[in-house]
Nucleic acid binder design. Structure first.
Lengths: 219, 219
DNA sequence: CCAAAACCGACTGTAAACAGTCGACTTATG
DNA sequence: CATAAGTCGACTGTTTACAGTCGGTTTTGG
């Protein structure tokens, strides 16, 4: 019966743990589970229709991703980010993406890289008129691609570990201030710098981009 | 009876999960669990005298730290790092510590920072004649302090997530090649640069330091 | 002797039950 | 009425038990 979910196109059936992980991540970054909210294992396990044991494994991972914070007695709650933490997160993010840009600049054959980045930017352009969520997603997709193209798995993994926190930062501020200015032009500048192999310029552009983004979120 | 373990000086009793985590980390980085070795949950749970459920929570965390790699059907094995991966890890590490140095340079009051870093270096000096493990630990302690002093919790957390992989890198190569050249002088250069607030120099010194370290490990 | 099918063992995925602890609320007592 | 002791409930930490699946091995039929 359970085998009916077709694993046809590499779409392997994910374990309940992974499903719970996705569901919780979505619930948190969508605001369904608001920052500061206390999480009760039995509630969640019932809500997600899984056992506590399986749930707890997912919770550990979310905790390490920085989406949950542990209270005194193992009590978990959705993490609340203050302005300093948002700035800190974006500083680390900038460092990682800065490395990504430098790495890409030093690549002997950047043909493929340039193409992929341009595709990502095109995708961003198409969602310019879309919902806020869509624009955020295409933006993150661009930056994730930046890291992935380096071929440095550790770099990609570190960035992805931060991705949840980045989403929370944007969401947290996205409610109060408008997060509308995710300029496509800025991203073109980055790609151009990488295209010409100008590592210093690429780094500078990214650092500025991140500074601006963080400033907009906390301003 | 169980209350006899004195939680006097903030030494709070750790959960079995945390104990297992420490034990496994030690076992892996000490080589007791060699890279490539397949891990069987029932074996480990019996070995550590804990249940599988509790163990699995610890395993998830180790997996995310990059100490374990998941096989086809949830099969876990101790991760084996090749030379490229070691270089990649040290590149990310360099980016993080580079950010740390820059952040420290921009701090208005660096008095306290300088003192702490000098203490860390003194500690390194004292272990100069110690065992290889002791020298490695004091070295990592210095770099961890670098990140901690920034006050950027995200930065510290990212670095610590990498710490296990760094240890594995050093160990992996430490067996074949000699990892004897952890120069104290290089660390003094970093502290001096921070002391004078020269962010560019600090960054340059750290990048070179990491390049050298990675090169020594894979050479 | 070879091949295919049935069997078995091992291991992970998952669920349900048990135990301990902390906080809140109630009750008794001066 | 205020305070302290006692009780109740909720939640996490932990263990034990069950189910499903894959790979290897043996057995059986040609």
């Amino acid at each position: 019966m359970a085998g009916l979910t077709a694993p046809l196109l590499g779409l392997e059936k994910k374990s309940l743990r992974e499903q719970a992980l996705s569901a919780l991540r979505t619930a948190i970054t969508s605001g369904e589970l608001a920052p500061g909210r206390h999480l009760v294992e039995t509630e969640l396990s019932e809500m997600l229709q899984i056992s506590r044991g399986t749930l707890r494994e997912a919770l550990r991972q979310l905790e390490q991703e920085g989406l949950l914070s542990a209270g005194p007695r193992g009590r978990l709650s959705v993490r609340h980010l203050d302005e300093k933490e948002i700035r800190d997160i974006f500083a680390v993010r900038a460092a990682l993406e800065s490395l990504a840009a430098r790495t890409l600049c030093e690549l002997p054959d950047r043909q493929h890289v340039t193409e992929s980045l341009h595709s990502a930017i095109d995708a961003m352009n198409e969602t310019t008129k879309g919902t806020l969520k869509e624009r955020i997603e295409s933006d993150l997709e661009f930056h994730r691609t930046l890291c992935r193209l380096t071929g440095n798995e550790t770099l990609l993994h570190s960035w992805e570990s931060l991705e949840g926190s980045i989403r929370m930062s944007i969401m947290f501020a996205g409610l109060e201030k408008g997060v509308s200015n995710m300029s496509v032009d800025r991203h073109r500048e980055i790609v151009t710098a990488i295209d010409t192999g100008d590592a210093a310029l690429a780094r500078k552009t990214i650092l500025e981009h991140m500074d601006t983004a963080a400033a907009n979120l906390v301003a």
